[in-house]
Design a protein around this nucleic acid. Structure first.
Length: 212
DNA sequence: CTCCCGATAT
DNA sequence: ATATCAGGAG
């Protein structure tokens, strides 16, 4: 690992801690899967509001699989993209229930074969549930990894590979968790708080623009 | 590349 | 008014 990279990771560890704390609320693996599916282009805070009621109403994958489409759409409407998300949730949970007997699969291939589950969601499950080292590239990781100069790519899969080369395996999951927190509070997309940023000297965008 | 889409911050 | 939010599929 480069010295510069270690310095950045040390600062992240110190500022955001080293606890594997997921910011989507869930009790069981299938609930994390559902919550992550709902989190596309939506704040995790809003997902948590929706899932609080959702997981009381539907208490198993089979419950979601058997749900009425229109009713489920209304249940998840505030998260946006609700037609697609409801349809995918039903199809996905039907597979979890019937094909996998209520167990969430653990391989990238099995996970991404589920409706509405792409690479990002699959890696969240692998990392948080099965503790398999995996790099999750979401909107925060993409933006901040580019600002930190860990990648110059736009494509999430290429960014994933760049990060796997850049970061030690035991920090892959932690990096994602820390960057989300960092991205929500300081290194935001629109008007980042560069004045309070502990990583300012490492920021490629700050170097160019003086302020992002 | 385009579409899906409500809620909030700027 | 518009950009953005733990993306994925056709």
């Amino acid at each position: 690992m480069k010295k510069r990279t270690k310095e950045i990771l040390d600062i992240l560890d110190q500022q955001f801690g080293t606890e594997y704390k997921c910011y989507l609320n869930y009790e069981t693996p299938w609930q994390l899967l559902a919550a992550t599916m709902l989190s596309a282009q939506c704040t995790d805070a809003r997902v948590n509001i929706v899932t609080k009621d959702l997981f009381q109403k539907y208490t198993s994958p089979g419950d979601i699989a058997a749900a009425d489409l229109k009713e489920l759409e209304e249940d998840i409407r505030p998260t946006g993209f609700y037609h697609n998300k409801a349809k995918n949730l039903i199809a996905c949970m039907k597979d979890i229930h019937e094909k996998y007997h209520d167990e969430v699969p653990s391989t990238l291939e099995e996970l991404t074969s589920l409706a509405g589950v792409g690479r990002k969601t699959a890696n969240v499950i692998r990392g948080n549930i099965y503790h398999d080292p995996s790099v999750v590239v979401d909107t925060h990781v993409k933006r901040i990894s580019r600002r930190l100069g860990f990648t110059t790519n736009e494509d999430p899969e290429k960014i994933e590979q760049d990060l796997m080369k850049e970061l030690p395996k035991d920090h892959w999951i932690l990096y994602n968790i820390q960057i989300i927190q960092f991205g929500r509070t300081i290194c935001t997309a629109r008007s980042p708080k560069c004045g309070e940023c502990s990583l300012q000297k490492y920021c490629e965008e700050y170097k160019i623009k003086g302020k992002v």
